[in-house]
Amino acid sequence: MENNHSTKQIWIVFLILLILTGIEVGLGIFKPVSYQALKWTFIILTLVKAYYIIAYFMHVKHERRNFIFTLAFPAFILIPYLLFILLTEAGDLI
Protein backbone atom coordinates (compact mmCIF):
# COMPACT_ATOMS: atom_id res chain seq x y z
CA MET A 1 0.00 0.00 0.00
CA GLU A 2 2.66 2.45 1.13
CA ASN A 3 4.86 1.17 -1.68
CA ASN A 4 2.32 1.77 -4.44
CA HIS A 5 1.49 5.19 -3.12
CA SER A 6 5.04 6.55 -3.27
CA THR A 7 5.88 5.08 -6.67
CA LYS A 8 2.76 6.71 -8.01
CA GLN A 9 3.89 10.06 -6.61
CA ILE A 10 7.26 9.70 -8.36
CA TRP A 11 5.54 9.19 -11.72
CA ILE A 12 3.20 12.12 -11.09
CA VAL A 13 6.18 14.40 -10.42
CA PHE A 14 7.84 13.05 -13.55
CA LEU A 15 4.73 13.85 -15.56
CA ILE A 16 4.64 17.40 -14.16
CA LEU A 17 8.30 17.94 -15.06
CA LEU A 18 7.71 16.53 -18.53
CA ILE A 19 4.68 18.74 -19.20
CA LEU A 20 6.43 21.88 -17.92
CA THR A 21 9.48 21.13 -20.09
CA GLY A 22 7.17 20.53 -23.05
CA ILE A 23 5.49 23.89 -22.48
CA GLU A 24 8.90 25.58 -22.27
CA VAL A 25 10.09 24.02 -25.51
CA GLY A 26 6.81 24.88 -27.27
CA LEU A 27 7.02 28.49 -26.12
CA GLY A 28 10.68 28.63 -27.13
CA ILE A 29 9.98 27.40 -30.64
CA PHE A 30 6.74 29.26 -31.44
CA LYS A 31 7.25 32.43 -29.33
CA PRO A 32 3.57 33.39 -29.05
CA VAL A 33 4.19 36.42 -26.78
CA SER A 34 6.78 39.16 -26.33
CA TYR A 35 10.33 38.39 -25.22
CA GLN A 36 9.86 39.94 -21.76
CA ALA A 37 6.74 37.87 -21.09
CA LEU A 38 8.49 34.74 -22.36
CA LYS A 39 11.51 35.40 -20.18
CA TRP A 40 9.50 35.61 -16.98
CA THR A 41 7.37 32.62 -17.96
CA PHE A 42 10.54 30.57 -18.43
CA ILE A 43 11.95 31.70 -15.10
CA ILE A 44 8.75 30.88 -13.22
CA LEU A 45 8.37 27.47 -14.91
CA THR A 46 12.01 26.69 -14.12
CA LEU A 47 11.56 27.56 -10.47
CA VAL A 48 8.47 25.34 -10.32
CA LYS A 49 10.45 22.48 -11.85
CA ALA A 50 13.30 23.09 -9.40
CA TYR A 51 10.81 22.97 -6.52
CA TYR A 52 9.46 19.59 -7.62
CA ILE A 53 12.94 18.11 -8.10
CA ILE A 54 14.18 19.35 -4.72
CA ALA A 55 11.03 18.64 -2.74
CA TYR A 56 10.13 15.22 -4.13
CA PHE A 57 13.12 13.68 -5.91
CA MET A 58 15.60 14.91 -3.33
CA HIS A 59 13.12 14.21 -0.55
CA VAL A 60 13.54 17.58 1.13
CA LYS A 61 9.82 17.72 1.80
CA HIS A 62 10.24 14.85 4.24
CA GLU A 63 13.31 16.21 6.03
CA ARG A 64 13.15 17.96 9.39
CA ARG A 65 12.20 21.61 9.21
CA ASN A 66 15.40 22.94 10.79
CA PHE A 67 17.40 21.02 8.16
CA ILE A 68 15.32 22.52 5.34
CA PHE A 69 15.93 26.02 6.71
CA THR A 70 19.66 25.36 7.06
CA LEU A 71 19.79 24.52 3.37
CA ALA A 72 17.30 27.08 2.12
CA PHE A 73 18.44 30.25 3.89
CA PRO A 74 21.98 30.49 2.45
CA ALA A 75 20.62 29.77 -1.04
CA PHE A 76 17.68 32.16 -0.78
CA ILE A 77 19.80 34.98 0.59
CA LEU A 78 23.05 34.66 -1.37
CA ILE A 79 21.78 33.71 -4.84
CA PRO A 80 19.20 36.53 -5.25
CA TYR A 81 21.76 38.97 -3.81
CA LEU A 82 24.39 37.95 -6.37
CA LEU A 83 21.89 37.96 -9.24
CA PHE A 84 20.54 41.35 -8.22
CA ILE A 85 24.01 42.90 -8.33
CA LEU A 86 25.04 41.25 -11.60
CA LEU A 87 21.81 41.91 -13.48
CA THR A 88 21.57 45.48 -12.23
CA GLU A 89 25.07 46.13 -13.52
CA ALA A 90 24.16 44.48 -16.81
CA GLY A 91 21.35 47.00 -17.14
CA ASP A 92 18.59 44.44 -17.41
CA LEU A 93 16.70 45.07 -14.19
CA ILE A 94 16.38 48.83 -14.33
Partner: peptide, 16 residues
Protein backbone atom coordinates in the same frame (compact mmCIF):
# COMPACT_ATOMS: atom_id res chain seq x y z
CA UNK B 1 26.25 28.66 -5.20
CA UNK B 2 29.09 27.95 -7.66
CA UNK B 3 26.67 27.31 -10.49
CA UNK B 4 24.63 30.41 -9.67
CA UNK B 5 27.88 32.35 -9.87
CA UNK B 6 28.51 30.97 -13.36
CA UNK B 7 24.97 31.47 -14.60
CA UNK B 8 24.88 34.94 -13.02
CA UNK B 9 28.05 35.87 -14.89
CA UNK B 10 26.47 34.50 -18.05
CA UNK B 11 23.36 36.60 -17.45
CA UNK B 12 25.55 39.67 -16.91
CA UNK B 13 27.25 39.28 -20.29
CA UNK B 14 24.05 38.17 -22.03
CA UNK B 15 22.21 41.39 -21.13
CA UNK B 16 25.22 43.69 -21.17
Amino acid sequence: LTFSGFLGAYGFCRFK
